[in-house]
Nucleic acid binder design. Structure first.
Length: 293
DNA sequence: TACCAGGAAATCG
DNA sequence: CGATTTCATGGT
């Protein structure tokens, strides 16, 4: 797929990107640090950079960046060189339910996010509402992350790296409203600093082996491990099962009160190597439908 | 007020 | 082993 790229005054204007909608991509549950502005653009920090993105007709405008950064960083981060048309065709098969879910989330792209940030973010996510997860992560960033810049009068901070978190007490971490997960964050940060697990090498392992390693971290269980694999390691056969996905699978495909194992086996058989994409379409669709409330 | 939230760890049988 | 209970905390 080819697009045209123009640069002017710290703005990069791109035409020709298909299968990419900002709200679908930023609100399908894979990320926590992108926020909608009043003009329906989105502002966020990723890769240590602060940008704002807006869609205007056929154009997508990346503000506060350069053409070089777009080519070197944002194409990869937004997964823009992947053919989502082919993915959607494969996931949809002849399933009317999946076709509806895909239509609703037609503009989803699975971001290539930082392993460490996703590790800590999803440890924080366990058993909490998304609004509160975002609140905790922002508190951690503004407290311990580097100041990146200001946009629309709002200050932005990078996600703190392991060096910036290590040595903080459980009580200090708790000040970011993490509750009992503070201990998991402290312990996991220590494991990273001691190089007990090389988080940035795990993507070179098979999904099964990388998952096994992730499960050694404090606060990482099956669901969080699958999120890390899918959202930061290109492991698209991972299928994270949270309360929403479990409910939507029970609603459409399986008996009520299905076990996690049943859901997992069914998803692997039905979606195979594309399970992660299917999961995102289903999660986003389930939340749209409000299934289970 | 009671219940629930993108679950995991500890404990039980 | 698999199944059940406990764990902070804020929103509704």
């Amino acid at each position: 797929m080819r697009y045209t790229i123009k640069e002017q005054h710290r703005k990069v204007i791109v035409e020709g990107i298909i299968d990419f909608e900002l709200s679908d991509t930023f609100e399908c549950g894979q990320c926590f640090r992108w926020n909608r502005e009043e003009d329906d653009s989105f502002t966020g920090v990723a890769k240590g950079k602060l940008i704002n993105i807006q869609k205007k007709g056929k154009q997508i405008i990346f503000d506060n960046t350069t053409k070089e950064e777009f080519l070197n960083t944002w194409i990869d981060y937004f997964d823009l060189d992947r053919d989502y048309g082919r993915i959607k065709k494969n996931v949809a098969q002849n399933d009317a339910i999946m076709e509806k879910a895909i239509l609703h989330g037609r503009g989803i792209r699975i971001l290539n996010q930082d392993e460490w940030e996703i590790l800590i973010s999803f440890i924080i996510s366990s058993n909490r509402a998304i609004k509160l997860i975002k609140k905790s992560i922002e508190a951690l960033c503004s407290r311990y992350g580097k100041f990146i810049g200001t946009y629309n009068g709002k200050k932005y901070y990078d996600f703190p790296n392991p060096e910036e978190l290590v040595g903080k007490s459980i009580e200090e971490i708790k000040a970011s409203h993490t509750g009992y997960r503070a201990k998991y964050i402290v312990d996991t940060t220590k494991m990273i600093m001691e190089k007990q697990i090389e988080i940035y090498d795990l993507k070179n392992l098979s999904t099964t082996d990388a998952r096994k390693e992730l499960l050694r971290f404090s606060g990482v269980g099956p669901k969080v491990a699958d999120c890390i694999l899918l959202f930061s390691m290109n492991k698209y056969d991972a299928f994270p099962i949270d309360v929403w996905v479990k409910r939507v699978m029970e609603y459409f495909y399986l008996p009520d009160a299905a076990t996690l194992k049943q859901v997992q086996v069914f998803a692997k058989k039905k979606f195979g190597d594309y399970a992660g994409f299917a999961q995102q379409y289903l999660f986003y669709y389930a939340r749209e439908l409000g299934i289970g409330k």
